[in-house]
């Protein structure tokens, strides 16, 4: 980012004289040292996050099985939580991804030009709402509104294991938790997809239209293939957010134990994050270590998901035809 990147004939004097060393002032050294120090501090903090979590989690891994809450060891404790975390996030992803792609398409290719930016801002506002408010809304409004829907699902689709019922009368079910998470990750997936759709080469779009394609055919032939990796990475980022989401799930979901695929009943497995939020304020002794260990597991899961997402984004950046 310094002088050597200047294109064309650079103004004389921009380049340092070749023979002498550039003069480095004390201020320069201090400032660059500060900047570098801040960068290194971030690495230290992150190493600290990992190290402190591991230190505090370690007792849970080595404790005798009967001391762990549930009395069957750490894996038996954290297993249903991992299952619940993945299930809720997966529901959210399945609902949010198609919707987000459609919303992004609407903003980039269907809405009137003049409105598009304002509409995009409206969707961004969805991302700004704190998760506690989504939790209150989910429990207070959405859960109540979803009860008839879940009763309908039980009556007509009850033969599918997901909707076996009995349908909850409070509406605080895995399906509703997934819906709330879907609302929360929708703006993330939309934002990433929108960026990529806007980068579609204009010539490809115009070529498709000139060959007589309708708008949808143009989108299917030019926009979607170009944006596929963007959609995937946006979905992965959304998945990472949904996996780590705490308060909304803690408020909405009615928790009682084990692994089940039944989405509309009262008995649901909790998620790792929600379980920590619910148990931690009253926890003491080994329970604290167990909860921190489950947090470490969550950290590793989200780390894996986010790394895959970044990998896809970066690979696309390098090989994209747009640059």
């Amino acid at each position: 980012m310094s002088t050597e990147t200047s294109p064309g004939p650079a103004p004389a004097g921009a380049a340092a004289p070749p023979s002498t060393k550039p003069v480095v002032q004390a201020g320069d050294r201090i400032f660059s040292g500060l900047a570098k120090g801040a960068g290194i501090l971030i690495l230290v903090v992150l190493a600290g996050v990992a190290a402190f979590l591991i230190v505090q989690a370690a007792p849970a891994f080595f404790a005798p099985a009967e001391d762990i809450p549930g009395g069957a060891g750490f894996l038996a404790y954290v297993g249903p939580l991992i299952f619940g975390t993945l299930l809720a996030a997966l529901i959210a992803l399945l609902i949010a991804t198609p919707l987000a792609v459609a919303v992004a398409l609407f903003i980039t290719h269907y809405a009137p030009r003049r409105l598009a930016q304002g509409l995009g801002y409206l969707v961004d506002l969805l991302a700004a709402v704190p998760s506690i408010i989504y939790g209150l809304w989910g429990a207070g409004t959405l859960a109540v509104a979803a009860v008839p829907l879940m009763q309908w699902l039980e009556r007509y689709l009850g033969w599918i294991p997901f909707f076996a019922g009995p349908a909850s009368v409070t509406g605080r079910t895995m399906l509703v938790a997934g819906l709330v998470l879907a609302v929360m990750i929708l703006p993330i997936i939309t934002a990433v997809s929108r960026e990529v759709f806007l980068q579609t080469p204009k010539l490809h779009e115009e070529a498709a239209l000139a060959l007589g394609a309708t708008r949808w055919e143009m989108i299917r032939m030019a926009v979607l293939p170009f944006g596929r990796s963007g959609i995937i990475s946006g979905a992965m980022l959304g998945l990472g957010r949904a996996l780590g989401e705490t308060m909304a799930v803690a408020i909405v979901l009615s928790v009682s134990g084990g692994i089940t695929f039944n989405l509309i009943s009262n008995g649901n497995p909790s998620t790792i994050a929600a379980n920590i939020a619910l148990q931690f304020p009253e926890a003491s002794g080994l329970t604290v270590n167990v909860l921190i260990a489950s947090g470490l597991v969550l950290f590793l899961i989200t780390l894996a998901v986010n790394s895959i997402a970044r990998y896809i984004v970066n690979r696309r950046r390098e090989f994209s035809g747009a640059n």
């Binding site: 600290g48 996050v49 780590g244 705490t246 920590i276 921190i292 470490l296």
Partner: peptide
């Protein structure tokens, strides 16, 4: 990038552990 993806509850646990 990794830090961007840290779940907020994990950040809280880090502070507690620290």
């Amino acid at each position: 990038d990794v830090m961007t993806g840290i779940p907020s509850i994990v950040a809280g646990l880090f502070a507690v552990a620290l």
